[in-house]
Design a protein around this nucleic acid. Structure first.
Lengths: 232, 232
DNA sequence: CGTATCCGATACGTTCGCGTATCGGGAGGG
DNA sequence: CCCTCCCGATACGCGAACGTATCGGATACG
């Protein structure tokens, strides 16, 4: 928000290295939590990674939880931002392409997955945190859905229940990420993930009904997918 | 496996209370890990819950990891067993019914979900554990799939890629469980979960092709679902 | 260039949990 | 009924991490 020296005339004085220190601590926290786990990470470990002693830490944060939350919100917001950007650059594409862009933006990041998985589990125990995580999930759904429904509509498909599609996509992302990471290098897991996404996309949409019966009225229902590239 | 006093004539002597002690420690471990998290659970906490001191613990296990793993494998095996039983009692049912039975057997258990989620994240850091978790997931898939494909076939639907269906179901279970737990009491989350399962079931199966064109050859493809009970 | 202030390093005492070594009560066998 | 051996409790020392209080070098400003 600030970053420079003075704010407007009555604020803090020196804020130059302080910002750098914060930054290094935030970055170190990501690595520490990813490598050591949410529950086993210590203040000392984070400081060591950042090249500080605990003095620096307690001067900037009051607890590990606070540092973690700051780091998580930052990374999470960055991810959401990247997602928006990636989707913005898919102007009039097929849904497949929009989906592929979204997946590329989100990715299946090992470190980040471990962190969020453990944090989510922790949040389930802590009402305040639970609400924060739930809100973030909702934001992700609300970013994703309009773009995909747009792409689907342009491809001639309606989405009757957008909320359902959103939940489904997030659930599928979470669930398949674990599988991909559990079997590193597995071609199958990745293919199954992609296949499931495609299925969901089509299962939660249907051919746009032409208002007063125009084109292709004889075809009664549903040609499942453009192609079915998986070998039987 | 034994539970009584002697094994065959050359084994340990007293094994009566020892077994009880083990049991109480295993049960206490479940509660402790669920409430305090995987990384923050201490030996003392488990012992206190079980009504012992650390002496009992170190007499039965050599590390907390060992106790955790024993507990996890037991509960996990029990879950798998319940699943098999529940599915065995769905003799010639519709796939919907088999699915419902499976979901009821597995359920969305808060405690258990937190434990497995954190443990899985931990296992991703530890090759040995990673393989154990992956194997367990595979066992679950292999239990689930044949029953469901059987039910689907009896309902006149083929499953072209059973492995894909298995992964999809497990992924959907994991992914939607988090959502259901993140929004406690949310009718929507539960409904979305069920809906997604149904979609997956049908997306990964197709009407059995009558060998030499028998019934309903005119219908070109796919009547999506029997009913679509969700309100728009 | 001086000086006031900031901020991270250092030093300190404390608490928590660990793992081991030893003890004593009670369960089983003769 | 004794007596042996098991097994969980107790006692002990240790190391890790914590949070605070204080110090000294760096930094911004006049």
């Amino acid at each position: 928000m600030d970053g420079t020296t003075q704010l407007d005339g009555k604020a803090r004085r020196t804020t130059a290295r302080r910002a750098q220190t914060r930054r290094r601590l935030l970055d170190a926290a990501l690595r520490a939590f990813a490598e050591e786990g949410f529950g086993r990470t210590t203040v000392e470990s984070v400081c060591a990674r950042a090249g500080f002693t605990r003095g620096a830490f307690y001067s900037n944060f009051s607890s590990l939880d606070e540092l973690f939350l700051a780091m998580w919100e930052e990374r999470s917001a960055r991810m959401l931002h990247d997602l928006r950007e990636a989707l913005a650059q898919v102007p009039a594409a097929a849904p497949e392409e929009a989906l592929r862009a979204a997946l590329a933006a989100v990715g299946v990041d090992d470190e980040w997955h471990r962190i969020t998985a453990e944090f989510t589990a922790h949040a389930l125990r802590t009402p305040g945190l639970r609400r924060i995580v739930a809100a973030r999930e909702q934001a992700i759904r609300e970013t994703l859905v309009p773009v995909l429904t747009g792409a689907l509509r342009r491809a001639g498909r309606d989405v009757p229940d957008e909320a359902a599609l959103g939940s489904a996509l997030v659930a599928v992302h979470d669930g398949t990420s674990v599988q991909v990471l559990l079997e590193p290098g597995s071609e199958d897991a990745l293919r199954h993930r992609e296949e499931l996404f495609r299925h969901v996309l089509y299962a939660y949409s249907r051919p746009t009904p032409r208002d007063a019966g125009a084109l292709e009225p004889p075809a009664p229902e549903e040609t499942p997918h453009p192609e079915e590239p998986h070998r039987a």
